[in-house]
Design a protein around this nucleic acid. Structure first.
Lengths: 230, 230
DNA sequence: TCAAAAACGAGAGCGCTGCTCTTGCATCGG
DNA sequence: CCGATGCAAGAGCAGCGCTCTCGTTTTTGA
């Protein structure tokens, strides 16, 4: 499957990579809305119709970029997770949150592609759901390690509604059966709330509201960790 | 200033309204990316160039829609605030959060325009910042009332970093000088986190993760309220 | 009151977009 | 070696935002 059969296939891989690379350049520079197939082709010295041999449509090219971006972000989060193995779980939480935020601030247009408005005619294909889960699973991993070390305190929220318990059980069966249900519910909420914090900063909603962004983010993430029970 | 001088000015107001109305229809149906000046003009039975007499560019038309959307969302939040005057602050918090979420779910494309990826060449003009603050100020109002009633407990977070305190003081001087600084910091975080919860739901990130959306949202909002000290 | 000024709708047109189809050439497999 | 396949190029279609001009209508001010 992954054996390169000949010069043709090798060339195909190379061109596909060059297209993605140039597209990523334009995405980072101008944003998804200004990403143009014709401009990519122009920059690569080919004619626009030739590009359709490699990507059947602009949306498919965008999807490829989305997957790559999810992977890059997931990589950053998992690197922070691995780098803090053994640390206190509160520190690890902050580290993963910080890594996520740092990546988002460094790649705002890619971040917008992942967590901003969905592309109009676009529904997430199967290939994106695994890469999209990596940040969340890194957060879950922290909680699992903390739980194993007995550092996990139960969230002080009210009783968990039954329907939420059902959702959480399905998740637990697939990923983290050892975590208490209220913790998993808190994790899910904290996961989305983390991206609320980051999204507001990247998209400019903190303009003239929060200026000490680093300190505010750390302080708010600490609150999230406490909400989860870390 | 707001006196209608003659038939021409009256017609202008009418046409401007019709354009916004049709544009809002297309925005709600297809999303901002598919909103086309030419299609709006076509639907209104005029030629596309005529539309430029009313809006100097597509971005200006979008900006007008953004302001209207912020106002509609703010109205919904403030209505929930007013409807729960006198209730316990936790109830009021949930009510405002629910109203915000309900509006977002009912107007996903408008919501995406407000809190999704910013439009490429777009920087929020002065006219949008007041309407954009209405939901946040509704949340602040709940905390102020709770504080006045002595129902507010101090957030159990760590000590507030000095830089965050400075931000918060600026905010307090302008809007809510009576609230304790840690509460204001918590409010700001909860404000963004609320839109993290809502955004994940509207943009489909809870697909196959959270199915009991209503219950999960209420439960998570209760946690937010506790984080603020309500 | 009447002419100058301003506002307006229609139309043509520019350069751009995503995408399709056809044509001719290079490469690959039997 | 030859038919099948892969590929780049070009022309072309429909749509887009936006500009400019032109004739008409309304408003304005001396």
């Amino acid at each position: 499957m992954s054996v390169i059969r000949g010069a043709r296939e090798r060339a195909r891989i190379e061109v596909t990579g060059a297209i993605k690379e140039e597209a990523r350049r334009q995405l980072a520079a101008e944003g998804a809305a200004r990403l143009s197939l014709r401009a990519v082709a122009r920059e690569l010295g080919m004619v626009s119709s030739a590009l359709y041999r490699y990507f059947p449509s602009r949306d498919e090219l965008l999807t490829a970029l989305i997957i790559d971006a999810y992977d890059a972000l997931g990589e950053a989060a998992e690197a922070a997770l691995a780098a803090t193995a053994g640390d206190r779980s509160g520190e690890r939480w902050i580290a993963v949150c910080r890594a996520t935020r740092t990546w988002a601030l460094a790649h705002p247009h890619e971040y917008a592609l992942l967590y901003g408005s969905p592309v109009p005619g676009y529904t997430a294909p199967q290939d994106t759901i695994a890469p999209a889960s990596r940040v969340g699973l890194a957060l879950v991993a922290i909680a699992r390690d903390a739980h194993a070390a007995g550092e996990l305190t139960a969230p002080a929220n009210g009783p968990l509604p039954d329907e939420v318990g059902t959702d959480v059980e399905r998740f637990a069966a697939e990923w983290a059966s050892d975590l208490p249900k209220p913790t998993l519910a808190g994790l899910t909420a904290a996961w989305s709330q983390l991206f609320g914090l980051i999204g507001f900063e990247v998209f400019g909603h903190f303009h003239r509201v929060v200026e000490a962004r680093d300190a505010f983010f750390d302080h708010s993430c600490a609150a999230l960790a406490r909400q989860v029970g870390l």
